[in-house]
Nucleic acid binder design. Structure first.
Length: 117
DNA sequence: AGCATGACGAACA
DNA sequence: GTGTTCGCCATGC
């Protein structure tokens, strides 16, 4: 497990967690959307990296973060490969072949939904 | 330093 | 719509 994080990354990770915690019940967002909201447009991979580290944190619903296609690419990183899908279905989100059905309808864009001061 | 990899994404064929 | 390539940036060897 990666534990060594620079101060710069801790700050970035912290922002990611803050956004992920704000994702409403039954809604999902994408790595790119979070990265874009945080200003690092091309930092989607870092968001994914943050999720990997956030997995141990209880208040971060990482299962509500998927890629831009609505595919549960990170399901294998949960305790069980079935955990992510199970959590999403519990939020009345329909999963079809590891992909969220009606992804656009449940998509939650922090850029639009979150008020920027 | 160079090279490969990755919970990504956009551009291109 | 699918497959490939490249950009991105941190991490590991």
């Amino acid at each position: 497990m990666i534990q060594k994080l620079s101060e710069k990354n801790k700050d970035f990770f912290d922002q990611v967690y803050e956004v992920v915690r704000l994702i409403p019940f039954g809604r999902v967002t994408s790595y790119g959307a979070i990265a874009n909201y945080l200003g690092t447009k091309s930092g989607a991979r870092m968001v994914g990296w943050a999720m990997n580290a956030a997995h141990v944190l209880p208040d971060v619903p990482a299962h509500r973060v998927v890629n831009r296609n609505g595919i549960l690419t990170g399901k294998m990183h949960f305790s069980d490969a079935n955990e992510m899908e199970r959590l999403l279905k519990n939020e009345m989100i329909v999963i079809e072949k590891d992909q969220i059905k009606d992804f656009e309808k449940v998509f939650w864009d922090p850029m639009k939904e979150l008020v920027i001061h």
